[in-house]
């Protein structure tokens, strides 16, 4: 018994059994974990089409997309000008307005404060954009963070203009 243990043919069977057992356990556990991921019915709602024909300049609507509020704002000339005339270097999270709004008149973004997930209020705050009442973040007319604890600008979701009256979000 004091001899050094030799590798036997049986060791191969042990190793192979453990390996196959691990694969089997993994194969059984994965469905139990994956069932918690977004299901097909949730994914089916992953895009929303919005009719924007009745929206006047200066007005905005809030729609639900994937359970989250999305702001769609038809900006006035002044608001666009204000957003475009900002020196990028002055911004905490530098982004050009041109990169945030494909069509300068339409601003589409998630209405979720990047701080702790509250919903900011429109046409408020020191920069005439949005203001989050929870912890006092101020966003400008391009939805960029200007003042307060939020780390980044309001997020722009994937969207496209289906035609001149309809925006598809997602």
């Amino acid at each position: 018994m004091s001899e050094k243990k030799k590798v036997e043919r049986r060791d191969f069977i042990f190793t192979a059994s453990y390996a196959l057992g691990a694969v089997g356990v993994g194969a059984v556990v994965w469905p139990l974990i994956d069932q918690m991921n977004p299901d097909r019915s949730v994914k089916a709602l992953a895009s929303t089409e919005v009719d924007i024909s009745s929206l006047e300049p200066g007005k905005s609507i809030t729609v639900l997309w994937r359970g989250k509020p999305v702001f769609i704002k038809r900006r006035t000339k002044d608001e666009i000008e204000e957003a475009r005339n900002v020196d990028i270097k002055d911004l905490p999270h530098p982004e050009k307005d041109e990169d945030r709004a494909k069509d300068p008149e339409w601003l589409v973004m998630l209405g979720i404060c990047t701080h702790l997930g509250c919903v900011p209020l429109g046409d408020k705050g020191e920069y005439n954009g949005w203001f989050c009442p929870c912890h006092g973040s101020h966003y400008d007319t391009s939805g960029r963070i200007r003042k307060g604890p939020a780390p980044t600008n309001l997020e722009i979701p994937k969207y496209e203009f289906v035609n001149s009256n309809t925006i598809k979000i997602g």
Binding site: M36, P38, K68
Partner: peptide, 8 residues
């Protein structure tokens, strides 16, 4: 997303 089973 896994915890929520969705996007919110």
């Amino acid at each position: 997303n896994w915890l929520w089973g969705g996007y919110s």
